[in-house]
């Protein structure tokens, strides 16, 4: 580690002020109102879609008269109507209710796996960058190994090995997402590490774990939040894609990918609503997160724009 000679009380005080100013800027940039205010119209639309998605996932199934899993044979294959907005499937289940109830599962998988990947990736990336040398080499080589597989195929093989189900889907998507977070925070910490206030903290005896958690990570949050927002949409597509193949969420549990797959065989009988509506919901959800992520990136970290 490079050490500086500026450890006189005056210098330390000056550098602490600098650190505080940094934190202040970061905090201001994260005020919710501030973000919403600066979003462009398209991203605002994204935000609205995402909020609507959360609201309907939480309250939708409660407000509807049908149960997502209860079969009702006499009412099977009904086309969309005022009593069944999205029609019914081959067991007579209300597709609208199932689409809303699936939103819960898909949000849980996407947000759960991105949350986990966020925490694990941040830990790995910041440790690698802070300690450098062997720690960096070992941790980042492992990340490279995961990155050297096409994402969806690795996910497919892992979920085949672990078996289907919501929990395993979350584990697998976490594994394939961790490297993005680790790489992102690593490059951020590498540049932050050279900042004067980090040096000051180090020379005045602040322990390494505190430097990482109190100085480096808070100042990388912007980059991390953008990475998370961008990856939520991929996580959703992967989860639904795996379920579509029959490797993810198992029927009768309602999940968008599973529902699309259940409707596939009905499509050429003209019963399009069984798979079209869940797909539309998935598309809208992914679109919402993508638009929101785009806007966040423009505000928080314009350099990340590609």
């Amino acid at each position: 580690m490079r050490r500086r000679t500026e450890n006189t009380p005056v210098a330390i005080e000056r550098l602490t002020r600098q650190a505080n100013r940094f934190a202040e800027i970061t905090k201001r940039r994260f005020g919710f109102a501030y973000l919403v205010f600066r979003l462009n119209p398209a991203s605002l639309l994204g935000l609205i879609i995402v909020v609507a998605l959360f609201l309907s996932a939480f309250f939708g199934p409660l407000a509807l008269p049908y149960s997502p899993d209860k079969t009702n044979a006499p009412e099977r294959f009904q086309a969309p109507s005022s009593s069944h907005f999205f029609g019914t499937d081959k067991y007579g289940r209300d597709v609208f209710t199932r689409v809303l109830s699936a939103a819960r599962v898909d949000l849980l998988i996407a947000l759960g796996s991105i949350g986990l990947a966020f925490v694990i990736g941040t830990a790995i990336g910041s440790l690698a960058a802070y300690f450098g040398k062997a720690v960096d080499a070992v941790l980042m080589r492992i990340m490279d190994m995961i990155k050297s597989f096409p994402q969806f195929i690795l996910a497919m093989a892992l979920v085949a090995a672990l078996g289907p189900g919501v929990r395993n889907l979350i584990i697998v998507i976490t594994v394939i997402m961790v490297p993005s977070f680790a790489r992102m925070i690593r490059s951020r910490v590498l540049s932050l590490r050279e900042m004067a206030y980090v040096d000051a903290a180090r020379t005045s005896g602040v322990p390494w774990w505190k430097i990482i958690t109190a100085y480096l990570i808070p100042n990388s949050l912007g980059t991390l939040v953008v990475t998370a927002a961008l990856n939520v949409s991929y996580a959703m597509l992967d989860a639904a894609g795996l379920s579509y193949l029959g490797l993810g969420v198992r029927p009768p549990q309602a999940e968008w990918g599973t529902m699309i797959s259940e409707g596939t065989s009905q499509l050429l009988a003209g019963r399009w609503w069984i798979s079209v509506f869940p797909g539309l919901a998935l598309f809208l959800a992914v679109l919402g997160f993508n638009l929101l992520a785009d806007g966040l990136r423009d505000i928080i970290d314009p350099r990340m724009r590609r």
Binding site: S233, G241, L267, V276, G279, F283, V286, L287, N290
Partner: peptide, 26 residues
């Protein structure tokens, strides 16, 4: 074009494929 391309990366292929079959074949 920006709108179209955000839409394009958000479409699940296993769904757009089905819609294509439904529209163009069925």
């Amino acid at each position: 074009l920006r709108g179209i391309s955000v839409g394009g990366i958000s479409i699940p292929v296993f769904w757009s494929g089905l819609v294509a079959i439904f529209v163009f074949y069925f």
